[in-house]
């Protein structure tokens, strides 16, 4: 059964349509990269996808959605807030339990952030903050990961490591990416957007970055 099944969808803000006539089906196990120039509607498409995955997708929003005054531990722990009782959440807010510290520590070591476990997020660099948000999504128990530009603030080496981890941890991954080479390398299917419409939907295997040029060229 498809995880996402859009048929001729239209979406936008306050009456202005940003996406039009979207038809898209994503099956479990797929790794999809959404590409296109900024303003093409990538974030809107991802938001729509997240809203449709009612039974729990993990999310990395573009603005990260971190709580600046909490520690890295707490921000990552928030990925499983819905799995624990309020009482347990409160206890972990006041005094982190060893079991949870171990689990979160394991996630962070995959992202090379284990030394920042109890640092306040507000004191971290942009790249470290981005990795914290990815950590929260990885800690989320959902099988689907929806991530909007999750590696935009880290160097290419780290980006590859993070994308590899994400692909390894989550069965289905839907990414928005502006880096064409990375998108081709880590996705097995590319969805190209231009002016709010899907203009490309093909397997990534064998594609070259130049093949996507038409998505970015000025209209006309």
């Amino acid at each position: 059964m498809a995880l996402i099944d859009f048929r001729d969808e239209t979406a936008g803000y306050g009456g202005t349509a940003i996406l039009e006539g979207i038809t898209l089906r994503i099956e479990p196990g797929e790794k999809v990269a959404v590409v296109g120039e900024s303003g093409a509607g990538k974030s809107t498409l991802l938001r729509l996808a997240y809203e449709r995955c009612r039974n729990g997708a993990a999310l990395v929003p573009q603005e990260l959605g971190l709580v600046q005054s909490l520690t890295v531990f707490h921000n990552v722990y928030m990925g499983r807030l819905h799995r624990h009782s309020t009482w347990r959440n409160l206890r972990n807010l006041v005094r982190p339990a060893p079991a949870e510290v171990r689990e979160v520590g394991a996630v962070l070591s995959q992202l090379r952030l284990e030394d920042k476990l109890f640092a306040a997020v507000g004191e971290l660099s942009g790249g470290q903050q981005q990795r914290t948000a990815v950590g929260r999504a990885l800690y989320h128990p959902g099988e689907i990961l929806i991530a909007d530009e999750p590696v935009s603030a880290v160097d290419e080496h780290q980006a590859r490591e993070i994308l590899e981890t994400m692909n390894g941890e989550k069965r289905t991954v839907v990414l928005a990416m502006h880096d064409r080479a990375l998108a081709i390398a880590f996705a097995d299917r590319l969805v190209g957007l231009r002016n709010g419409r899907i203009v490309l939907d093909e397997p990534a295997a064998g594609m070259k970055p130049d093949d996507l040029d038409h998505l970015y060229r000025p209209a006309g």
Partner: peptide, 11 residues
């Protein structure tokens, strides 16, 4: 940090 804050509220 946050831990301390919450603790002083509890107090």
């Amino acid at each position: 940090m946050m831990t301390m804050r919450i603790r002083s509220v509890a107090a």
